[in-house]
Design a protein around this nucleic acid. Structure first.
Lengths: 141, 141
DNA sequence: TTGTAAACGAAAATCATTTTCATTTAGAAT
DNA sequence: ATTCTAAATGAAAATGATTTTCGTTTACAA
């Protein structure tokens, strides 16, 4: 996706188009993988002599708030971030080899919901589904 | 469930039946809800004059390793623990009102898997599903 | 009853994340 | 182009969950 899309979102939310923000968007947009704040920090340090880790955390949080970034939690209990502009409910497929994140627009939750509600006589309201496996590219190679 | 079941598991894994472990099992078994290590610590302090938070963490980890406890992560990025002895793949329904956790033994992952694999031409290997809502008891009251 | 590995408490360490505050900067207004 | 101001940033410290270390205690097998 073009960075312009993200710049528009920044403007829409009155977030300044700063060099650090641009670089984070550039790095994250260059691959579809997820990043830890530390990884992004390491990459930004190659470009900026002065760049603090809190800045990276702040920017990621803001990006999440304005809906251009989403996060996942792995087993290590750390948060990882990736670009994602989808607003409505959806799920993520994560490649265990290349770390690529793909959005899954369809999930037949109604089926699961029905099954759960019957089993437990409860009301299922929200659900969180995360799928891991091998992506197309990693399957082929 | 009777505590004896858990005592047998302790013995099977050569974990001693200590007062702290017994009390944690008693507390967790008294409700089917999830607990934070801090919550459990607070409850144990009522019974023991000397009880360290690391002990609670250690016991919970060991219980998870021997398969009598499972954990969930909430939005606050903290880990919560609850009694669960199911060995095979399953999912959890969490009541947002009373914090009760129920195991969901059925989930038609094949359907989801097929859909994801077709959409992304990838191979789905594992998945994590967590459902939130209102349990039977909270619905009725 | 005794020996020993396991369990524990206390204190400190770790590590991700957040806050504070003084300084700098993007971008709007002039 | 210059000025102004709120937003952004860096540095350092704080926070808070979780883990480690290590010396002492305890469960339980012999």
């Amino acid at each position: 996706m073009s960075l312009d899309h993200y710049f528009i979102q920044l403007a829409n939310h009155k977030l300044k188009k700063t060099p650090k923000r641009i670089e984070i968007l550039r790095v994250m947009n260059s691959k579809n993988t997820y990043f830890s704040p530390q990884e992004l920090w390491a990459m930004l340090k190659e470009k900026f002599q002065k760049i603090g880790l809190p800045t990276v955390y702040r920017i990621l949080q803001q990006f999440q708030e304005i809906g251009i970034v989403a996060s996942i939690q792995k087993e290590d209990n750390q948060l990882y971030y990736f670009l994602c502009s989808i607003k409505h409910s959806h799920h993520h497929f994560i490649c265990r080899k290349c770390k690529k994140v793909s959005c899954v627009e369809y999930c037949d939750f109604e089926q699961i919901k029905k099954s759960v509600e019957e089993q437990l006589q409860s009301k299922a309201e929200t659900h969180f589904l995360q799928i891991e496996g091998l992506c197309k590219d990693c399957l082929e190679s």
